[in-house]
């Protein structure tokens, strides 16, 4: 049961940037700046929630911070056609440094900040559900938002023209442009959606079940999301499967710690899983090709 609940929590944190990243990838942009955007959002969620003692303001601040990173990324990648790695890594470094700098300059602390004035994102208690209590009750609002978004996006992916245009922008942007639809606009839209989702994920990280900002607290979650997105290659179902698998491995690792396994060893789990999955995928498609 503990594994189930912690899987859901981890999964939520990865799922949001995965959903966003999948859109941008479908539109033809691999988003490398997820880690940085998430970190910025986490910091600004704390800031907003601290100043106004309202988690709504925390969420709003988080989304705006994520938007800032994403729009810079979009401008460089779409308008200037810059190398995504240079600009993505630069933004990740920017986020890491800027949050530490702001911790020092705004809160006057090094490394981490917490305060009772910060309001947490509430959990939803659905009343007494009997045996389902442990399965459904007291999950964060963000968890439910995420589940809603997954379903909604699945619909958008297959049943709307927006889904069609996204893929067209990624596969052959000239074809879309000559059909009178601006691929640049579509790409910006996908980045904006991503910014909102990553903003929520960042807020969940710092004020979801904590009231705390730690330096570099995103701790590679953005990268796991990027890996899942690359692994799924724009395909909705495969991306979801990869995310769930990675989220589960992450949570499994954490819960195995309570059985005495070293935490650093168990933290390797999701990465080992991704590596194994990648190698399997590669070798399999190679074999298929060999067979002819």
């Amino acid at each position: 049961m503990y594994i189930y609940r912690s899987t859901i929590a981890t999964l939520t944190m990865i799922m949001l940037p995965v959903l966003g990243g999948m859109w941008t990838l479908q539109a033809g942009i691999l988003n490398i700046s997820q880690e940085g955007a998430m970190l910025m959002a986490a910091f600004f969620a704390v800031l907003g929630s601290y100043i106004f003692s309202s988690f709504w303001m925390g969420l709003l601040f988080a989304i705006l911070a994520s938007l800032m990173i994403n729009i810079i990324y979009a401008f460089f990648c779409i308008n200037l056609r810059a190398n995504i790695w240079v600009i993505g890594m630069a933004l990740n470094i920017l986020a890491s440094s800027l949050t530490i700098l702001l911790l020092k300059s705004v809160f006057g602390v090094k490394g981490s900040f917490t305060s009772s004035k910060i309001q947490q994102i509430p959990s939803l208690h659905l009343g007494n559900l009997g045996p389902l209590n442990a399965f459904l009750n007291d999950f964060s609002l963000v968890v439910w938002i995420t589940i809603g978004l997954v379903l909604f996006f699945k619909y958008v992916d297959t049943h709307t023209t927006f889904g069609l245009h996204l893929k067209a922008a990624g596969k052959n942007w000239q074809a879309l442009d000559t059909a009178g639809i601006s691929s640049t606009l579509i790409r910006y839209e996908s980045i904006l959606i991503n910014a909102v989702l990553v903003g929520i994920a960042g807020a969940y990280l710092s004020i979801g079940y904590l009231k705390l900002f730690n330096k570099d607290m995103s701790a590679g979650r953005g990268w796991i999301a990027v890996a899942a997105v690359i692994f799924g290659d724009g395909n909705f179902t495969w991306t979801l499967i990869a995310t769930i698998a990675f989220g589960f491995m992450d949570a499994l690792g954490i819960s195995l710690q309570s059985y005495g396994l070293n935490s650093n060893l168990t933290l390797m789990f999701p990465y080992l899983a991704i590596t194994a999955a990648l190698i399997y995928q590669g070798v399999r498609s190679y074999r298929l090709k060999e067979k002819g």
């Binding site: 390797m268 080992l272 590596t275 990648l278 190679y286």
Partner: peptide, 23 residues
């Protein structure tokens, strides 16, 4: 040999190496 995406692979192997040494 197998055309595995080396970008993701090396990023993942970073984390594996770092956590392994931490352990």
């Amino acid at each position: 040999k197998y055309n595995v995406n080396e970008v993701v692979l090396t990023i993942m192997m970073n984390s594996i190496a770092v956590y392994f040494t931490l352990y």
